[in-house]
Every structure is written in structure tokens, then in C-alpha cells.
Deep mutational scan, measured.
Amino acid sequence: HITLTNLITEETTHVVMKTDAEFVCERTLKYFLGIAGGKWVVSYFWVTQSIKERKMLNEHDFEVRGDVVNGRNHQGPKRARESQDRKIFRGLEICCYGPFTNMPTDQLEWMVQLCGASVVKELSSFTLGTGVHPIVVVQPDAWTEDNGFHAIGQMCEAPVVTREWVLDSVALYQCQELDTYLIPQIPHSHY
């Protein structure tokens, strides 16, 4: 019994991606959610070859190996599938703050939850000092008015990073160091 759908849910078992011959794909929301959820992320060749051979072929032979941004053979989907007991964002409290493009905020929040993070909706909701690490995620190029994202640091004691930190961490299924993704914050004294 196979159901085809464009939506990823808890029940989804396989995410089928358009890939090149070496099982490398573009980074899409579907790709990120498939990895975050520990699903099989496979090339569409799995479907076409299975139909051709009239049997369901082994997914291992068709698993996506990499993507056009993070590298052609990083094995993120395999790492995620085999590490669902070791979520990459466990112990983190993440607030997805401000506008985002090409990806609804609720989907970004679901993605970080699938990776083990707790989501907070407001900067004031962080449970500071409880052994949980707060992180604010923003997408600077989605902000149309002044660079308000440079002043988020005044509203909460949390590192502010770009959305790329989430996307790179999920694609590779390895929590990336914050340093290269940090957004400089204007210190309090400048006000």
C-alpha cells in the first residue's frame, strides 16, 4: 500500500527527490524536513527503477548522498536516519524571529523540533538559566525595514544566528558551530 502526497507528515516514510546520477539534489523544504524527520530521502531513480523491475528495490542503493550547497557526498540523510536517538538540537531552545522567505515560519519551527529543539514563540519566553541553551534564528535578507535584527541582543541574552545555521546543520545532520553564522549585535551602550 503506497500513498503519494506532496505533504510531509509524521506518517511519511520516504521523501523522493529529483537528483543527478550521483544522487545529489537541490536543497528544498521537503529535503530538510525529510532529513530532520529521519525519513528515507531517496532519488526518484528509486521509483523509476522499482517500476521498471516491478519490485520495490532497496532504498540504500538510492539514498540521497549530498546536495548542491553542502557538498556532493556528506551523507546527511543517512546520518539522520541512523541517529534518531541522538537529535542534533537536543538541549537547545530556538526562537525563529522575524520574517522568513521561501519557507513558512511554522515549517522552520517544525524542522528544529524534529531535530530535538524546544521552540519558543517570543524572545521573552526563553527559560534562561535552566541548562537549556537559547538561540535566536533570523533571516536578515528578509527584513525590509531597518536592520532591527542587529538589536535583538538587547531583548534577550541569546546568540543570534542566520537561518543558514539551521539549514546547514539539518542538511549535514551535524549541529554546526555558531561562530560563522552569528549576527553582530549592537551593544547596549549605543542607545
Score class of each variant (00 low, 15 high):
Ile2Lys: 11
Ile2Thr: 09
Leu4Val: 06
Leu4Thr: 12
Thr5Arg: 13
Leu7Trp: 13
Ile8Glu: 03
Glu10Asp: 03
Thr12Phe: 05
Thr12His: 07
Val15Phe: 03
Met17Ser: 03
Lys18Leu: 15
Ala21Asp: 06
Ala21Phe: 10
Ala21Lys: 10
Ala21Leu: 10
Ala21Ile: 13
Ala21His: 06
Phe23Leu: 06
Val24Leu: 05
Cys25Asn: 01
Arg27Ser: 03
Lys30Arg: 00
Ile35Ser: 04
Gly37Pro: 00
Trp40His: 02
Trp40Glu: 00
Glu53Arg: 00
Phe62Ser: 01
Glu63Ala: 12
Val64Phe: 01
Asn70Cys: 15
Asn73Glu: 15
His74Pro: 06
Pro77Glu: 01
Arg79Thr: 11
Ala80Cys: 13
Gln84Leu: 13
Arg90Val: 07
Arg90Thr: 07
Gly91Pro: 05
Glu93Leu: 08
Glu93Pro: 14
Glu93Val: 07
Glu93Ile: 14
Cys96Gly: 05
Cys96Ser: 07
Tyr97His: 15
Gly98Thr: 03
Phe100Val: 13
Thr101Pro: 08
Asn102Met: 14
Met103Arg: 02
Asp106Ala: 03
Asp106Cys: 13
Leu108Met: 05
Glu109Ala: 09
Trp110Leu: 06
Trp110Thr: 13
Gly116Arg: 00
Val119Thr: 05
Val120Gly: 04
Lys121Leu: 14
Leu123Phe: 15
Leu123Arg: 14
Leu123Asn: 12
Phe126Ser: 13
His133Pro: 08
Ile135Leu: 02
Gln139Glu: 15
Gln139Ser: 13
Asp141Ile: 08
Trp143Thr: 04
Thr144Ser: 09
Glu145Gln: 11
Glu145Thr: 08
Asn147Glu: 15
Gly148Arg: 09
His150Gln: 03
Ala151Thr: 11
Ile152Arg: 10
Ala158Ser: 08
Val161Lys: 02
Val161Trp: 02
Arg163Cys: 07
Glu164Arg: 10
Leu167Arg: 03
Leu167Pro: 02
Ala171Gly: 04
Gln174Leu: 04
Gln174Pro: 03
Gln174Ser: 05
Gln176Pro: 04
Leu178Val: 08
Tyr181Cys: 01
Leu182Trp: 11
Ile183Thr: 08
Ile186Leu: 14
Pro187Met: 08
His188Thr: 08
Ser189Trp: 08
Ser189Pro: 05
Tyr191Gln: 09
